[in-house]
Amino acid sequence: MNIFRLAGDMTHLASVLVLLLKIHTIKSCAGVSLKTQELYALVFATRYLDIVTDFISVYNTVMKLIFLGSSFSIVWYIRHHRVVRRSYDKDQDTFRHYLLMIPCMLLALFVHEKFTFKEVMWTFSLYLEAVAILPQLVLLQRTRNIDNLTGQYVFLLGAYRGLYIFNWIYRYFTEPHFVHWITWIAGVVQTLLYADFFYYYFESWKNNVRLQLPA
């Protein structure tokens, strides 16, 4: 464990808790893409298949349970909570997210470290996580206004992946044969997707204006 990875995990934890707290407190999911939340629930479900077979550490297991619990809770709130679901804008959140799942699954079937069920599902979860934010970014561009909690959510998600890149650089130089090309490439692609959001997020923060994404 290094400071970059711990900071990354804490930032990731903060992103899901900020979102869950927002939805639970104000009983609204305005501006939140259900599609992205469903993709994230699938990412965690396919990545943490080893939660019962491989015990790594208490930290690792607790964090996996929190990520699984929070992502499925967020999906439940938006789909089934009698108040929250009324604020879900299904006419705007129209990204066909199965068009993201299929290529990720195909790629995982061809590009992986070893051809076992768990490894292919794990690789699928990496590819899917890289693109899972797209429905949310599309929704933000459509609705144009970003309430600051949704903006914070996207910002924290991007920051977590950015910190992981520093973690991989650190581990590459400190641990012999720590090489995981698939993880690195998927992580860099994911971070790049946030790059333009970060630019507009900082611009609005610097000029102290409401964050407006270009159409």
Binding site: R5, D9, H12, D50, D54, I56, S57, N60, M63, K64, F67, W122, Y164, N167, T183
Partner: peptide, 10 residues
């Protein structure tokens, strides 16, 4: 050798 944990990251 210790059981090297390949997947130790979240």
């Amino acid at each position: 050798s210790i059981h090297e944990h390949e997947k130790d990251e979240l």
